[in-house]
Design a protein around this nucleic acid. Sequence first.
DNA 1: CAGTATCCTTGCGGATACTG
DNA 2: CAGTATCCGCAAGGATACTG
Lengths: 139, 139
Amino acid sequence: MTNDEILHQSQVVCDGLSVEENNLWREILTHAGNRWSLGIIHSLGVGGKLRHAELSRRMKGITQRMLTRTLRQLERDGLVTRHDMGKVPPRVEYELTDLGMGFLLQMTPLWTWVVENNEGFLESRERFDARPVTPPKRY
Amino acid sequence: MTNDEILHQSQVVCDGLSVEENNLWREILTHAGNRWSLGIIHSLGVGGKLRHAELSRRMKGITQRMLTRTLRQLERDGLVTRHDMGKVPPRVEYELTDLGMGFLLQMTPLWTWVVENNEGFLESRERFDARPVTPPKRY
DNA sequence: CAGTATCCTTGCGGATACTG
DNA sequence: CAGTATCCGCAAGGATACTG
């Protein structure tokens, strides 16, 4: 596909979006932009079925609260399933759904692209932050 | 590329990420998940060079404040350039950079995919919200 | 182990009014 | 026209303590 074709496709996609679809899309992307979501999806993608504690270990720095919150959100979005094996001792396993795996696969090219363009982003931000603040007063 | 290859690639990408790169990536994606960012990028992608007021008209419902804020953020990220044509009357034009166009092109497949899987997302959320609330008390 | 319950800080998004 | 200046409500993210 050429760039023009992709651009045209984006036009078609956007124009065809209902308000609800647009909201859903933005919500999904907002969740993806949340601090831990992508890390968890990735861990489950390459690690298969994982327990709460195991995920906690892989996602260094996450608190129990945020892990639970994020997992619930992913579950609600249909990207992750929660298997409660019954208690004594508590054992809960999380796994990517097909939708979740699809999401990871769709996300990876974008991920790669951002990392490839790392320098561009960083330079732009440095330039922006170094601008004189006086004429167009900062906001 | 097969799914396994993509998955392997995602592993490679993730493993190779420094903390800073990871933060940058998350930040870029967070911005993309913001309410107006993608709409603006798309408008500039298909509409070319646009003035503040023209963008305001295309992004129905946006306030002046949020338009300016979002544009500044996109400018800082290097996705958009701001051309001030000098005042009397004020005329400022915004345009996608190559980086911004690249971003739009990278984003479109994901966009398409989410829309295609619309039903899956909606169903999952309905199922989740309809669950009995008592046993694993809602959070 | 796998959560809940509180409390707190920050920043997004919006409403409204004003200006060179 | 293209912003700024304020003020506000709300949700994200985090710290800490507690529980079946």
